[in-house]
Amino acid sequence: MTALAVAKTAKLYLGGAFVRSESGRVYRTEVAANIPRASRKDLREAVRAARAAQPGWARRAAYNRGQVLYRVAEMLEGRRREFVAVLGGGRGAGREVDAGLEALVYFAGAADKLSQLSGSVNDVAGPYFNFTVPEPVGVVALVAGERPALLGLVVPLAAALCGGNCVVALVAETAPLPGLLLGEVLATGDIPPGVVALLSGLRSELLPWVGSHRDLDAVDAVGCTPEQLTALEERAADSVMRVLPPGAAGAALRLSPQLAVRTLEMKTIWHPVGT
């Protein structure tokens, strides 16, 4: 007689903990049942935790953030089999996990290059030292790509994190399990509580609350349909929230420091030079 398997309950990753939706609701996808259906209040809590965590995360040395992301990659490597399985098995799944690892390592190594890649010392026509430095935009909502479900989350997530942002991510609606599973990697990979939230649920329900949330600084709309994007942009205007558009097909997954730079703000600082 074989042992009865212990099935894992899918949970949201919120404030560094694994929780059910405060609403108690679940939804089902083609392959999975009982996926937590995050509510607007779960979103609110996630943003609150991210806002609280953001200054500390941003003020860590970039080198340190890079090492944390590398640690995340290590954790993902250790759980490769589990991810391959949740991605449906097969060679494609393996390649996606590899690509996710590649992205984490890429941005782990990008964290302490962003100032040099995007900042500058500026030759102003006066007795001033003038320089421009990037800063994280703050708390970013990430509408992760639906497909590929893991990579569509990992690439923009790592890009935003390496620059010092906190991220509230809506994982793929139709294939939420890889995204939710990533929470376990993040939690064991030294990502501080609150820095990342992973919410599964219905985009039709959550996106209006994302667009109208006045304490979100930006939303990465990489996974939005054109209709969702339009609605999001209309709402975002109320708080001048930055809406990072999906961009050309495939561009969102092509590793480049620019993916991180678009989640940064440029700050220009002036100081006189005198005795």
């Binding site: 001033y128 006189p272 005795t275």
Partner: peptide, 8 residues
């Protein structure tokens, strides 16, 4: 005294 501001 800040030199640049003074001279301006």
């Amino acid at each position: 005294v800040d030199q640049v501001g003074l001279e301006a």
